[in-house]
Design a protein around this nucleic acid. Structure first.
Lengths: 351, 351
DNA sequence: CTGAAAGCGCTTACAG
DNA sequence: CTGAAAGCGCTTACAG
């Protein structure tokens, strides 16, 4: 023991140190800790005492290698700075901790190449599963790195994978109908890009609701790109036209921010002169006025279902892929307002 | 090889499979991949071909166990939903990826017991280092889980640890002086709690600036608790007094949100009737009006220095602890306004 | 109930 | 330059 004395100052104690001190086999220490096999009271006491004395903490790396499972889940999302994904990661970390899993976190920054690279390093770490919001609708790299995967928010249609996402088309209809019901007839939709199916679905819902209202000629889609300031610029330009829309429907968080910035930069009467319906809820939307009306994605439920699907997949690796759509809610606050009133007033004024 | 044939469909190929196929020793495959030892061109070709053919990907768990380093860094923060910490995590993930490290992410939800538990599971995974924003100023649990650690934002004074944080006292002075320079004399400070030293430092800076202006009798600290709505309630109550402050200095992100909510819920003329200086920058603060004036913590620099300190500690485990303070900036926007003007106007009006 | 041995998949001395 | 062996720290059959 004196020989190992020096070692202990630098290296943490191992299961062999504990076993030697308790005069039992390493397997017995393992069994006391894991409870996988019953251990007699006497030995158990000695082992526990030795653990306490040495401050032994099992090396999970060794355990994972041997058990062929890491109790670790990878989370790969396109944008950690986006509150929608931040909230999802937050919820998932909670759920994972409850079930004894750790989270390996990676962000793709919306970049396909980086995403493929992160996918490779994540799977090299032998994650047990992956919760993945891809940068593109299709992820060819996924085939090269087989791991139980749940697609979240994006990539819903990728065949053979479990997936959970909002019912985006219904959300698009819900939002547009709300605006129509307020008397708006010129409703423009703003989005970052049409590259992703989830956005296209929202646009489709918007078109459907427009058609229902006999407004199919009025569809107008403004594409602003992936950052809020380019969205702002795109919206500003549109609002400067001779016949600007009376309502804006922002179909994602980034363009919501961009639309607000555009409206405020132009110093338009808001919501009197223009209504705005945003997408995704955030704390600040009920802080400054007007409180923002938005389509709320069920973030907590999306995280919970993603986690449940992954647990299910881990338990049953071979079952058929499950696809789940979750309904969004409409939060009517202050930024969407009746239009007819204003218009009539305007019409009655002298030119 | 046919014996292993079946195996390959279920289990991923190992270094032995590659070695067998290339007719070399496993060590040679390892050397080709790591470059630690030179390998002759002929063998190298065969190894590369075998790797390509099998789709071999080294098991990092095994590699980590053998090399005694996981190339993984733990990040433990109190609140993943707070944009300040979300931004920090985002930046750190980028820096880690550049340097070939992975991130094990955990959140304490401001709970000491949970924090201790997460600390234990993180170190059990044999993280090489930890970047840690603790829930309390002192973290006794850290002693039980020795790992190269950099304290970030909080716990700055913990002896023996590298640490990086904003210069909070200077930030408090900077903010209060700004308000004083605008003619305010009744300046209340709002914060979540005085439990954390970083907040106390900001309050101290505020008091110093007040004293400099001969206003030491005017200090007024409103404590709102850890969520925005309880902050809102506390601020609302204060603003309803007979002699409400003319300016509010919110000393952290959560109370900034709470203060805005209070002002807006009361429908006060903002910023005419009351100025607000917030803390921590966020996208929405330049969206709705008035654009929020804030003290900006240098998030990118904090993350960069935390990462640099950790790399330094990993390279030089025994060096003395380094403590770094980073300066905050004042972003003057629209929510802080001259006070004297209004007051004089008010005084000249009939009661 | 308990132990000795083998092995998870790598990498690192040790020989040559 | 290359290989055979030992070992990282666990857990899992295999015996008793």
């Amino acid at each position: 023991m004196t020989r190992d004395g020096e070692k202990r100052f630098t290296l943490p104690p191992t299961i062999r140190d504990v076993a030697a001190l308790a005069a039992v086999a390493p397997a017995t220490v393992s069994n006391v800790l894991s409870g996988r096999r019953a251990v007699g009271a006497a030995l158990r006491e000695r082992v526990l005492a030795a653990i306490a004395q040495t401050g032994y903490r099992p090396n999970q790396l060794a355990s994972s290698l041997r058990r062929r499972r890491s109790d670790t889940i990878g989370i790969l999302v396109p944008d950690l700075a986006n509150p929608f994904f931040a909230a999802l990661v937050h919820r998932l970390e909670d759920l994972a901790a409850e079930d004894g899993y750790q989270i390996l976190l990676a962000g793709s920054n919306e970049d396909e190449a980086r995403e493929a690279e992160r996918l490779a390093t994540l799977t090299a770490r032998r994650i047990d599963g992956l919760i993945f919001a891809p940068a593109r609708d299709a992820t060819p790299a996924l085939a090269a790195h087989p791991v139980p995967t749940v697609l979240m928010d994006r990539g819903f249609a990728q065949a053979g994978f479990d997936a959970v996402a909002a019912d985006n088309e219904a959300a698009g209809r819900l939002g547009c109908r709300h605006l129509v019901s307020l008397g708006h007839r010129e409703i423009a939709l703003v989005a970052t890009s049409l590259q992703l199916a989830n956005i296209r679905e929202r646009v489709e819902g918007y078109r459907i609701a427009l058609a229902e209202a006999g407004l199919h000629g009025e569809a107008r889609v403004i594409l602003g790109g992936f950052d809020a300031d380019s969205c702002r610029a795109a919206v500003e330009q549109d609002l400067r036209r001779a016949e600007p829309p009376s309502a804006l429907f922002a179909a994602d968080y980034v363009s919501t921010l961009g639309a607000v910035k555009a409206i405020r930069a132009l110093d338009l009467a808001f919501p009197e002169a223009i209504s705005l319906l945003g997408f995704d809820d955030s704390d600040w939307m009920t802080a400054l006025r007007p409180y923002l009306s938005v389509i709320v994605q069920p973030v907590t439920a999306i995280a919970a279902r993603a986690w449940a699907l992954l647990r299910g997949r881990l338990a049953e690796p071979l079952g058929p892929a499950r696809k789940e759509r979750l309904a969004c809610a409409l939060a009517v606050r202050e930024s969407t307002q009746r239009w007819r009133v204003l218009r009539e007033t305007a019409a009655s004024l002298p030119p």
